[in-house]
């Protein structure tokens, strides 16, 4: 057997090594796409899975990963995540944004309540994107240790945003976006925002997350929250201490969502692009995704997990810097 380049790639890759390349450095502001995973314990077998159903879409974005002692596990040899509803099934054959994470789109409709995640061994189906006759030649090392493990999520109530109006314009980072929605059953809420700024010469694009750690009480599903613009728009010269960039699994989910909504026409590194325009001095298009999250369940063989079903809705607002007198 001739060993070629990937032979030296270990089955388990650390998040750190896999994501250093994704780190984006910019003048005065270092932003890393991912350098660790919050809420992933250092020890034990941990499941991460999320299924997000965006308003009016006929597919949900599903992402999944397993961590062993804090390290993402690569499924290899035909082991693959399966996401299944009562009527549809997909294998998560697209790589996510960090090693060991996987993503795919799953067809859904209003009859769908639950999504079941399973690790299955499908040596032929997992290779279907290869060019050669995968049903004729192949080597099958057999199922790995994770095969048979599972998790399930349910979709919470759909999100309906009632304010602000689309394309509302804000002129100051001291402004507050009055976000209103039809309240639900008390599930967790958070906002993801994809920001694209231009000063006429250069552009900046990035993603931010606004959750209960950024704004106390943000998670409460009470139908009303004020989002300070300074949690989204920042001054490159002052640093970005007021905002939390999306990273890790959230980065993966938001990028997948943007990809879905643009029919694949968005830059795959949109949320990691080099930041050249100073947002506070630029015209910014802000796509805000309000997410309702409902915790799911994971296999008892996992020591811990973050398993979420979510629904989301989008509102776009604009930031125009004040015109100097």
């Amino acid at each position: 057997m001739v060993l070629f380049r990937a032979a030296s790639v270990p089955r388990v890759l650390t998040i750190t090594s896999a994501t250093i390349a994704a780190a984006v450095l910019l003048g005065g502001c270092e932003i890393q796409g991912s350098d660790n995973l919050p809420r992933v314990p250092d020890q034990g077998l941990v499941m991460y899975a999320e299924a997000n159903w965006h308003e009016a879409e006929d597919t949900a974005e599903v992402v999944a990963a397993v961590f062993d002692d804090g390290v993402a596990v690569n499924l290899v040899g035909g082991d693959v995540f399966e996401a299944r509803t009562a009527t549809e099934r997909v294998l998560l054959t697209k790589r996510g944004f960090f090693a060991g994470s996987y993503a795919e789109s799953l067809s859904v409709d209003n009859s769908i309540q639950d999504v079941f995640f399973n690790v299955v061994h499908e040596p032929i189906a997992a290779r279907e994107n290869r060019w050669y006759p995968v049903d004729l030649i192949g080597t099958d090392p057999g199922p790995g240790e994770l095969v048979g493990k599972s998790a399930s999520v349910s979709f919470p109530l759909a999100v309906t945003i009632t304010a602000p109006a689309t394309d509302t314009v804000y002129h100051s980072i001291n402004d507050v976006i009055g976000l209103s929605w039809i309240s639900g059953n008390g599930d967790d809420m958070r906002v993801l925002a994809a920001v694209n700024c231009t000063d006429g010469l250069a552009t900046s694009s990035y993603g931010v997350v606004i959750d209960k750690e950024v704004i106390a009480g943000m998670d409460v599903d009470d139908g009303d929250e004020g989002i300070p613009m300074n949690r989204i728009i920042y001054d490159l010269n002052q640093g970005s201490g007021t905002i939390e960039f999306v990273r890790d699994a959230t980065l993966m989910l938001l990028q997948e969502l943007l990809n879905q909504l643009s029919a694949g026409n968005i830059d795959p590194d949109f949320l990691l692009k080099q930041r050249e325009a100073n947002p506070i001095e630029s015209t910014c298009n802000i796509r805000m995704f309000l997410q309702r999250q409902l915790d799911g369940q994971f296999d008892t063989t996992f020591d811990a997990g973050t398993v979420i079903g979510s629904t989301s809705a989008e509102i776009t607002v604009q930031y125009l810097p004040p015109v100097p007198l």
Binding site: M1, L3, F4, A7, V76, P133, I137, G138
Partner: peptide, 19 residues
């Protein structure tokens, strides 16, 4: 003749097949 070599990384045996 089509030949295939596969490598799955550390801990999983590599393989070879042809047709």
């Amino acid at each position: 003749e089509l030949e295939l070599e596969e490598d799955f990384g550390t801990g999983v045996p590599a393989g070879q097949d042809s047709a």
